[in-house]
Nucleic acid binder design. Structure first.
Length: 245
DNA sequence: TGGAATGTTGGAAC
DNA sequence: CGTTCCAACATTCC
């Protein structure tokens, strides 16, 4: 489920619920009092990267799908929902195996919308500025940093670095300006390509590097290692992806 | 079929 | 007190 483009699809699929009043709210979430949602209309459904935000007049609930979360619209599944919302017209929005949290601050103060690669507010110059502020950071860590590239996940990371021919172990500060610019540009571009392929159910077949064995450009084996602060899988080609720094 | 994976958090450890 | 480490969560696929 994760990665920003998937959340973008969720937002598109749930526009029908905006403005509707929640008449039933339940589920096995322990983190919020679901009864407080009953009687409230949905003011907006928004995303910030991998966060799905349900805005009501009196509260904002944040859904995070982590690695395994799923959702269903107007149907159930074989597991009990973590959060299930029912509306007067009989429509239903179900969330499973996700993190549910109430946000008790002003969301506009909390979220930097310019960091969301899927957002109209995405600001590439601001992203470059954030990158220049941490020159020692590895390229693989930079792409996964949600404060800089909100919505980018491990697949997008590997594909972006392959596209721009940068070794994941490169340091941000050692990247030539054109590469830094390409990194930021492709983080958004690839995310929208991801979106299109995901909608067409052809995402996996478009992977060039992620979980691949042979470099499609050089036809030599990819290197594979767990890299960076979070020890995430990286796939890269020693021949066509250059290591800076 | 056991292990790994599109991810993050919170608390322990240092 | 700040930073780092690690278990925990939970589902699907190979």
């Amino acid at each position: 489920m994760p990665e920003g483009p998937s959340l973008y699809i969720l937002k598109e699929q749930t526009t029908q619920f905006v403005g509707k009043e929640i008449v039933r709210a339940e589920g096995n979430t322990w983190a919020i009092d679901t009864t407080r949602m009953v009687g409230q209309p949905i003011v907006s459904l928004r995303t910030w990267g991998k966060h799905f935000l349900i805005e009501m007049p009196a509260m904002v609930v944040r859904i995070h799908f982590l690695l395994f979360g799923t959702y269903r619209i107007n149907e159930g599944r074989d597991k009990p929902p973590r959060l299930s919302l029912g509306f007067a017209d009989g429509s239903v929005l179900n969330f499973y195996a996700c993190s549910v949290k109430e946000i008790d601050q002003d969301i506009d103060a909390m979220y930097d919308w310019a960091a969301d690669v899927m957002s109209d507010a995405w600001d590439p110059a601001k992203a470059r500025k954030k990158l220049r502020a941490c020159p020692a950071m590895l390229a693989c860590d930079a792409l996964l940093d949600q404060d800089i590239f909100s919505g980018v996940g491990n697949i997008i990371k590997n594909e972006v670095l392959f596209r721009i021919r940068v070794d994941p172990r490169s340091t941000v500060g050692a990247l030539p300006p054109a590469k830094l610019r390409a990194l930021v540009q492709e983080a958004r571009q690839y995310s929208f390509d991801f979106l299109g392929w995901k909608k067409a159910f052809t995402l996996k077949q478009h992977w060039l590097a992620h979980a691949q064995k042979i470099c499609p450009r050089c036809h030599i084996p990819f290197h594979k290692a767990k890299l960076g602060k979070s020890d995430r899988r990286s796939f890269w080609c020693e021949r066509c992806q250059k290591r800076y720094g």
